[in-house]
Every structure is written in structure tokens, then in C-alpha cells.
């Protein structure tokens, strides 16, 4: 029994990390632009699928193909920012409309991916073998450590960025009042650019690290965005630590539901959690109340 629980904990940790990364990207873009960036999960798809093309198909070593995949993600994200988001925002479109438009963008990217790679699930080999390691009775595949490592690294960098650089501090406050920020001379466009690069990097890392464990494919993005939003909402959209804890909580609930009740109800528990938190504590479990 204990082994079971440990096993679930292990799998919840890895899934939770992916949700946390997506949530992190969503929070940063939401905080700085007030836009819910539906492309976030799709960027994970782009990362995973590019890695598939470079690493699994063309056999380019990881040390090159991972950075290349991240660069592709960044390009997609920045294109979205400059072609869609910035022009719309500067015309005074409400952030709600821009959020909806990003749903359209994510649909377009998905279609492009489908046209290039087809509808099948794509398998990416593990980064360092598939020999399971047993810790306290729960077995991990090496890829799990990659995921945890990547997440920890991304989170650490995020915290440093937001705690100790003025740019980071500015970004978290921007969504509150862009006009004011502009008026006192913040380079708003540059900040937006950083936010979108950031979102591309965390999304890409999530997609890349997770691709060997679960299949990747053109349609995984929307699901990830929704899970990521649920994680962000549960943790509280105001801070990066909230996003991480939200992701882990969602991961925990999901794997225990899958393990003890039914794997078909996995998604149900996430949605129920999302609704529960929006109802009882709209600012999230770890968020500060915002007047």
C-alpha cells in the first residue's frame, strides 16, 4: 500500500511540475499584459514536437536540439506578440478580446503542426535511458529527474528574476495599470517582449521534458493550457510560488484520483478544483486579496 502511495506521489510530482511550468508562463503573461495567453500550452506542444523532429527524426544530439527547440518556441511566441497581441492592445482592444484571439492563434498553430506532422502521437526517446530507479519502493524512470530538474531550474531562475531585477518587479505590476506604467516611462513593449520570451521558455521546457514520458502530438496544447490555468488559479495568480504549488496540488489530486478511483475522472477532479477555488477563494490558495 505504501509503495502505491509513493508511486502516485512520484507520478504526481512529475505531472505537477509540467502544470506548474505552464501555470508559471500564464501567470507572467497575465500579470504583465492582463491577457490570458491560450497559446501557452500550445508552446509546450511546439517544443515537444520540434524536439521530436530534431532529436528523434534527425538524430541531432540533445545539447543542440533542446536549445534549438526553445528558440523555435521563442520565435513562435514573439511572432504572436508582434503580429497579434501588441497591435490589438495598442488599438485599445479589451484584454478579454485579446485572450479570445489567442485561442484562435493556438488553433492555427495546432493546424500547422497537424499539417506538418500528421495526427499521430509522436514518441520521443528518453534523454538518458529507461532503466528505472527505485527510491523508497517507488520506481522512477530517469526522465522524471529531468522533469524535476528542469522545473526546479526554471523556478529558481524565475524567482531570481522577479525578486532581484527591476525588470522582473516591473513586469508583475504592469497588468494592474498599463497606462500608468506607460505614463511614468516604463518601456512597456520591452517588458511585454520579456514576458512572452519567458512564456515561450517555460512552455518549451515543459513540452521538451515531458515529451519522452507521454506522447506528444499536435493536439496536446489546449488541455495543457486549461490544466495550467487551473494550477495558476488554485495557487493564486499573483505569484510564481503560487503557480508552482498550484501545479503540484493539481498533479497530486489527479494521480490519486486516477489511482484510487478511475483514470477517467482525472480531468474531472482538476475542473472541480478549479471551480471550487474560483468560488471560495478567487484569489487562489496562496494569493493575496486584491482590492
Amino acid at each position: 500500500m505504501l509503495e502505491f502511495i509513493l508511486q502516485f506521489l512520484a507520478s504526481s510530482l512529475t505531472e505537477g511540475c509540467v502544470y506548474a511550468l505552464i501555470a508559471l508562463g500564464l501567470v507572467i503573461v497575465l500579470r504583465s499584459t492582463d491577457v490570458l495567453f491560450f497559446v501557452q500550452g500550445t508552446l509546450a506542444m511546439v517544443g515537444g514536437i520540434t524536439l521530436y523532429a530534431l532529436f528523434a527524426q534527425l538524430n541531432i544530439p540533445l545539447i543542440i536540439s533542446i536549445p534549438l527547440s526553445l528558440i523555435i518556441c521563442t520565435i513562435v511566441s514573439l511572432l504572436t506578440l508582434h503580429i497579434i497581441v501588441l497591435p490589438l492592445l495598442s488599438r485599445g482592444a479589451p484584454s478579454m478580446s485579446v485572450s479570445i484571439v489567442t485561442i484562435g492563434v493556438s488553433m492555427l498553430i495546432e493546424m500547422a503542426a497537424m499539417l506538418i506532422f500528421g495526427k499521430n502521437n509522436l514518441a520521443v526517446p528518453s534523454f538518458s535511458g529507461d532503466e528505472p530507479v527505485t527510491i523508497l519502493g517507488a520506481s522512477f524512470v530517469p526522465q522524471h529527474f529531468w522533469i524535476i530538474g528542469f522545473t526546479a531550474g526554471a523556478l529558481l531562475l524565475t524567482l531570481i528574476f522577479f525578486k532581484w531585477t527591476w525588470m522582473g518587479k516591473a513586469m508583475t505590476g504592469l497588468g494592474d495599470n498599463q497606462l500608468l506604467a506607460k505614463a511614468i516611462g516604463f518601456p512597456v513593449r520591452r517588458l511585454f517582449r520579456y514576458a512572452f520570451i519567458f512564456s515561450a521558455l517555460v512552455g518549451g521546457i515543459a513540452g521538451i521534458a515531458f515529451a519522452p514520458i507521454s506522447y506528444t502530438g499536435f493536439g496536446i496544447g489546449t488541455r495543457l493550457t486549461i490544466k495550467g490555468f487551473a494550477a495558476a488559479a488554485v495557487g493564486g495568480i499573483t505569484n510564481p510560488v503560487g503557480a508552482l504549488s498550484g501545479g503540484l496540488i493539481i498533479g497530486l489530486f489527479e494521480s490519486f484520483t486516477a489511482g484510487f478511483i478511475s483514470s477517467r475522472l482525472k480531468d474531472l477532479i482538476t475542473m472541480a478544483l478549479l471551480l471550487l477555488v474560483l468560488w471560495l477563494r478567487p484569489q487562489g490558495l496562496f494569493g493575496k486579496k486584491n482590492n
Binding site: F229, M271, L278
Partner: peptide
Amino acid sequence: VPFLKLRHIYLGMATLGLGQVVYIL
């Protein structure tokens, strides 16, 4: 009753949650 006090994208995501709950059920 609980969700209309939310606005904009949060209300949208709440409706999305409801739709998904019904779908999964």
C-alpha cells in the same frame, strides 16, 4: 450564484470548467 461575481476571463474559465465537468461526467 457564486460565479457571476467573477469578471472577464475568470468567468470565462469558470464556464469552461462547467462545460468540461458536464463532458467528463
